[in-house]
């Protein structure tokens, strides 16, 4: 994209943001939409400020992010390791593949009640739910990354008498890094979904808990405000992740956007 169209895109992004937020606010002010059902940006901003002063939103956000990021980290480590084992051991990989795919097609949020029953309503249930959403896609992508290694590169390594572990470290592992990164990216929102759903089932803190309590009081502003905080947060994490990944994977043909 050349500089001119890049600037046009930036301008258009700002215009869209202003139109959406401004349109929402104005319609609420002029009574075109009922504030009771849809709240308004100014109400949300005020609620956010109040909540910030009482350290409420920060606390609940912290709880939810802790659950989500812990689940993401554990899911990534376990997923990558399982994926590598499956990818390196052909027999094991082929044998376990159908089970993994079956697991993956299971709607894992439906596991939530079961998980809560097993480990209770504390941190563990949200962590496990986030973990269960993250681990399978990361494992599958790592496995694919190994399978997708160019056989020509393996042949090249065999001609120079590379040992098996050298082929693994110098070809297979670097080859799955982009695959792992793209799985990690989608996993950020999976992990947050896991934590929130866990909190909906039952919790004493977290964004999900905030939304659930506000819903009980028919407080739309109280429901939307934490959602927007979460959205901004998840968006920032995604941007930071994409920037890091593009820096690290400079050798790739196409960058993420």
């Amino acid at each position: 994209m050349d500089q001119d169209s890049a600037r046009q895109v930036t301008i258009l992004k700002v215009v869209l943001l202003v139109v959406i937020v401004g349109g929402w606010e104005l319609s609420a002010r002029f009574g075109l939409i009922p504030v009771f059902w849809t709240s308004s940006p100014s109400l949300i901003a005020v609620a956010f400020w109040e909540s910030l002063k009482e350290n409420e939103i920060t606390y609940h956000t912290y709880i939810t992010m802790q659950e989500a990021l812990a689940g993401l980290a554990a899911g990534a480590v376990v997923g990558v390791m399982l994926g590598l084992v499956l990818g390196v051991s052909r027999v094991l990989g082929a044998a376990l593949e159908p089970f993994v795919i079956a697991m993956n097609s299971l709607p894992r949020v439906a596991l939530a009640p079961l998980i809560v029953m097993f480990v209770g309503i504390g941190f563990a249930s949200k962590f496990l739910l986030a973990f269960s959403l993250v681990v399978v896609p990361i494992m599958l992508n790592t496995y694919e990354g190994i399978k997708a290694a160019d056989p020509q590169l393996i042949n090249m390594m065999r001609v120079i008498h590379a040992k098996r572990y050298q082929v693994f470290y110098k070809v297979l592992l670097p080859n799955c890094v982009p695959w792992i990164f793209s799985a990690l990216r989608v996993s950020i929102s999976f992990a947050i979904i896991g934590a929130i759903v866990g909190e909906f089932i039952s919790a004493r803190a977290g964004i999900g808990y905030m939304i659930d309590s506000a819903a009980g009081a028919f407080d739309t502003t109280g429901m939307i405000m934490p959602l927007i905080v979460l959205m901004v947060l998840a968006f920032s994490i995604d941007r930071a992740f994409v920037a890091t990944s593009n820096r690290l994977l400079r050798w790739r043909d196409e960058a993420l956007s």
């Binding site: 160019d150 110098k170 994977l249 790739r252």
Partner: peptide
């Protein structure tokens, strides 16, 4: 090799 078989990373 016919194709360069370089490690892209």
């Amino acid at each position: 090799f016919q194709q360069h078989a370089l490690l892209p990373w």
